[in-house]
Design a protein around this nucleic acid. Structure first.
Lengths: 161, 161
DNA sequence: CGGTATCCACATGGATACTG
DNA sequence: CAGTATCCATGTGGATACCG
């Protein structure tokens, strides 16, 4: 499927493309969201999401292939299969929450459950980009830098524009 | 297409589903990334991304429909069309960067350009979830709270577990 | 330059029936 | 319970040719 052409230059090998290969369609994110909510079994995902069984089977398999979910059969009842988030899967939480917050903010009628800090029950901050010292950055304060420039910067401290 | 069933309960109307309706496939994110990189014209997107022209036309139209990009014809040459990010589109940056950082971290061979703070040229922090006072939170420190609970909390201060 | 039109291949999605 | 199998409709993607 969607094999990217060779002239992608800065785009090929980009983490975004890799991420989208694993997560690049609706159900993957919805399944992941359900997993974060504690769902573990095929039938749970199926009834909660209303996804077709064959599609769900395919998505779960892909998520397992990509190391986002781990599939285990229970010793007690080997017919019982558990899908659990791996560390790699859990690490998608910020991305998923960022996407969700955007939807909540810009698409109407989204007064759904909110993530709170369990310590004080207060809602979490909106996800934002921050400088190394924690300042919130907007688009104008950002630029792209190539890895080579960063290395170069390490050698001679004054080089980049 | 993918009309979600009625029994979605907590999932219908979720911002995530809305977000995915707008952005829920590879090219939308790749086009957005290109837009953040300053690309503005049909031919630029086409040659940089290597996407088929008909697909690109469809995606651009959808992004415009969803208010993520704005389409304008230049006065100087009305054949020249400019696609520019709207505020809504720009607000997708944290989600896109979070996704990209995840891909860079977990999928091999992603030593692509990095976002830096233009003030000091230092890379930005990894996107993370934070409490209202700025502490970084992990999965164990989070829970979902329904909007009604939050309202209730406003009325009687000691109620939630 | 910024698209449409067309054609084809395959992926995705839904519904349903069946299986170990 | 956790899938497979099957069928069908539509969406997505690529290639290319054409148009105003």
């Amino acid at each position: 499927m969607g094999k990217l052409r060779e002239d992608l230059r800065q785009y090929e090998g980009c983490g975004l493309a890799s991420a989208l290969e694993a997560m690049g369609e609706r159900w993957s994110f919805m399944i992941l969201r359900a997993a974060f909510n504690g769902l573990k079994h095929f039938e749970e995902f199926q009834s909660e999401l209303g996804i077709a069984r064959n599609i769900l089977a395919g998505r779960l398999a892909r998520l397992v292939e990509h190391g986002i979910l781990e599939r285990t059969a229970l010793d007690s009842d080997r017919r019982k299969i558990v899908y659990a988030l791996t560390a790699k899967g859990m690490d998608l939480l910020p991305a998923m929450v960022a996407l969700r917050q955007w939807g909540d903010k810009w698409c109407q009628g989204a007064s759904t459950p909110v993530l709170v800090d369990s310590r004080d029950e207060r809602p979490i901050r909106p996800v934002a980009l921050q400088s190394h010292d924690g300042r919130t950055l907007d688009l104008a304060e950002l630029r792209w830098k190539h890895a080579e420039e960063l290395l170069e910067l390490g050698r001679s401290s004054e080089n980049a524009a």
